[in-house]
Amino acid sequence: MNISRKRKGKVSIPTASTADIAFLLIVFFMSTTKFDVKEGIKLVLPAMAPDSAEGKAETIQLGEDKMTRLQIQEDGTIILNKEAARHIEDAELDSIIQQKLRENQDMIFRVITDRNAQYKDMIRVVDRLKAQKAEKISLSTN
């Protein structure tokens, strides 16, 4: 038995939309590509004193009216000036900083972090200081 095969007309794959597909791919990659942008808390460290042998740098005594000590302990608690160590939440920290800045616009905030304290605790305090527009921030350790 003969089966008749129809071979009328040319068989072709439509390629007209290839450009659209390629451009869609480009647009997709353009919109989903994430560039590695640097975002962080910027600080300027103090320059080293020429004869900064141990202890020599701390020759100027500043009172509480000019400098606020924020001492971060190993467990994340904070000693504010000479108060007892305690956990201070963000909101409370904000109001303390605001109050200190109201008392003295040029207040120096000295953040003393314990060597065994976690980095994020230091960042939390510096972040709060920056958020409240404190400009004079010093970092040190004990």
């Binding site: 640097k38 975002e39 962080g40 808390i41 910027k42 600080l43 300027v44 460290l45 103090p46 320059a47 080293m48 971060i72 972090t113 314990d114 060597r115 065994n116 304290a117 976690q118 980095y119 994020k120 605790d121 230091m122 960042i123 510096v126 972040d127 970092l139 040190s140 350790t141």
Partner: peptide
């Protein structure tokens, strides 16, 4: 969760090298 001591040591070397502008990425 890095201990701050390591950061403090690095920052001391930054001061020695006089590269004083730093940024903590967050």
């Amino acid at each position: 969760e890095t201990k701050y001591g390591a950061m403090s040591d690095v920052m001391r070397q930054l001061q020695d090298a006089e590269t004083l502008v730093v940024a903590f990425e967050a």
